[in-house]
Design a protein around this nucleic acid. Structure first.
Lengths: 187, 187
DNA sequence: CGGTTCCGAAACTCATGGTTTCGAAAAGAG
DNA sequence: CTCTTTTCGAAACCATGAGTTTCGGAACCG
């Protein structure tokens, strides 16, 4: 009942948020600037998102339409592709600007923390679990695997390279794919 | 010349900042609250630190008086101890609250970024380089090592466990020590 | 049509980072 | 011992930005 939301407004908000994230970073992003760039009123934003964080989350993370888990036929190949996907997501300009800020804000909001975990960590771990399951089925790996540990081993170095060392992760996918494969098969 | 700074004020600021970080987190920390808890004026804070970020940095990171690089006699032992030191630093309540926030703010301030990198990344890498040098001298490792990669391999999973997965890193030091040792010696 | 919800625009509140001012106290310089 | 400088706590002050509300008007459902 009543006038329905205009989906072009939805899209304009997300697009403006992404471009401003890339331009000004997370700290420099203001809701007024998003409204101005999207040529809409602030009320239209707050009708959709309760907080700035939710808006950023929707623009930079929720849109992480993860590709289906790859099947290259080998653990090494699968892992390398998965790492590359994480690298690609994390180096996308909007996401790169948003993720550290969200990671910080998440610590004062269990609500946002749960969403972020579902959309980011759980999704990555699901892809990883699938890929590891195939390796187990092929006999490449034993079935007793600590998925949290393997995920930390895969995603952690990407984060450290990009956010701690502030380096470009070129070539990291291949190196990390080899190392993790070796670590898992040698265990 | 003139009245010197009162070192008790210095200490009161840092102590108040640490306790408030642990209580309210980074987002909930206000400069007025620090001044009130330390029973000082805000001017005394801004006389010492240009921004809230610098204050937090001084309270939570700069105080990371890193222990000297351990020498346990083996690469496995040394790496395990180093990882445990990183885990301890990162799980200290004040630092745990501060680090994600600083990591986010760093991205809009090259000034702060450089300081953070020096006090955090460079320090960890120096300890790591020393430890690896000993292993090379003992013949445990070849001399061609990518220190950035090894650092990402060591620090990354700790970050992923604590900040992404939001889990307690108990037992991680031993597991990670074994895995990285294996990865380096099998390469 | 009538009621409800949307729209952009703009005004508003409130919290907070950061600056400045105040009178007073502490200390080095001469 | 006195003058000058810098500190001290306290409080007023300013600017920004998140979030709310109000407005006149338009779009849609029943």
């Amino acid at each position: 009942m009543g006038r329905p939301r205009d989906s072009r407004v939805d899209e304009a908000i997300l697009t403006a948020t992404r471009s401003l994230l890339a331009e000004s970073g997370y700290a420099g992003l203001t809701v007024d600037a998003v409204a101005e760039r999207a040529r809409i009123g602030k009320a239209a934003i707050y009708r959709r998102y309760a907080t700035k964080q939710e808006m950023v989350f929707a623009a930079a993370v929720h849109s992480a339409d993860l590709p289906p888990p790859p099947d290259t036929g080998s653990l090494l190949g699968d892992l390398t592709v998965l790492v590359q996907e994480i690298v690609d997501h994390v180096t996308n300009p909007a996401a790169a600007a948003a993720i550290p800020g969200l990671l910080a804000d998440v610590r004062s909001s269990p609500e946002l923390a749960a969403r972020f975990h579902d959309a980011f960590v759980t999704v990555q771990q699901a892809g990883l679990a699938e890929l590891l399951g195939r390796a187990v089925a092929r006999g490449e790996l034993p079935s007793s695997l600590d998925i949290d540990l393997v995920h930390a081993l895969v995603a952690g170095p990407v984060f450290a390279t990009v956010y701690l060392q502030n380096r470009s992760p070129g070539g990291l996918a291949e190196q990390l794919g080899r190392i993790v494969t070796a670590a898992l098969t040698e265990a």
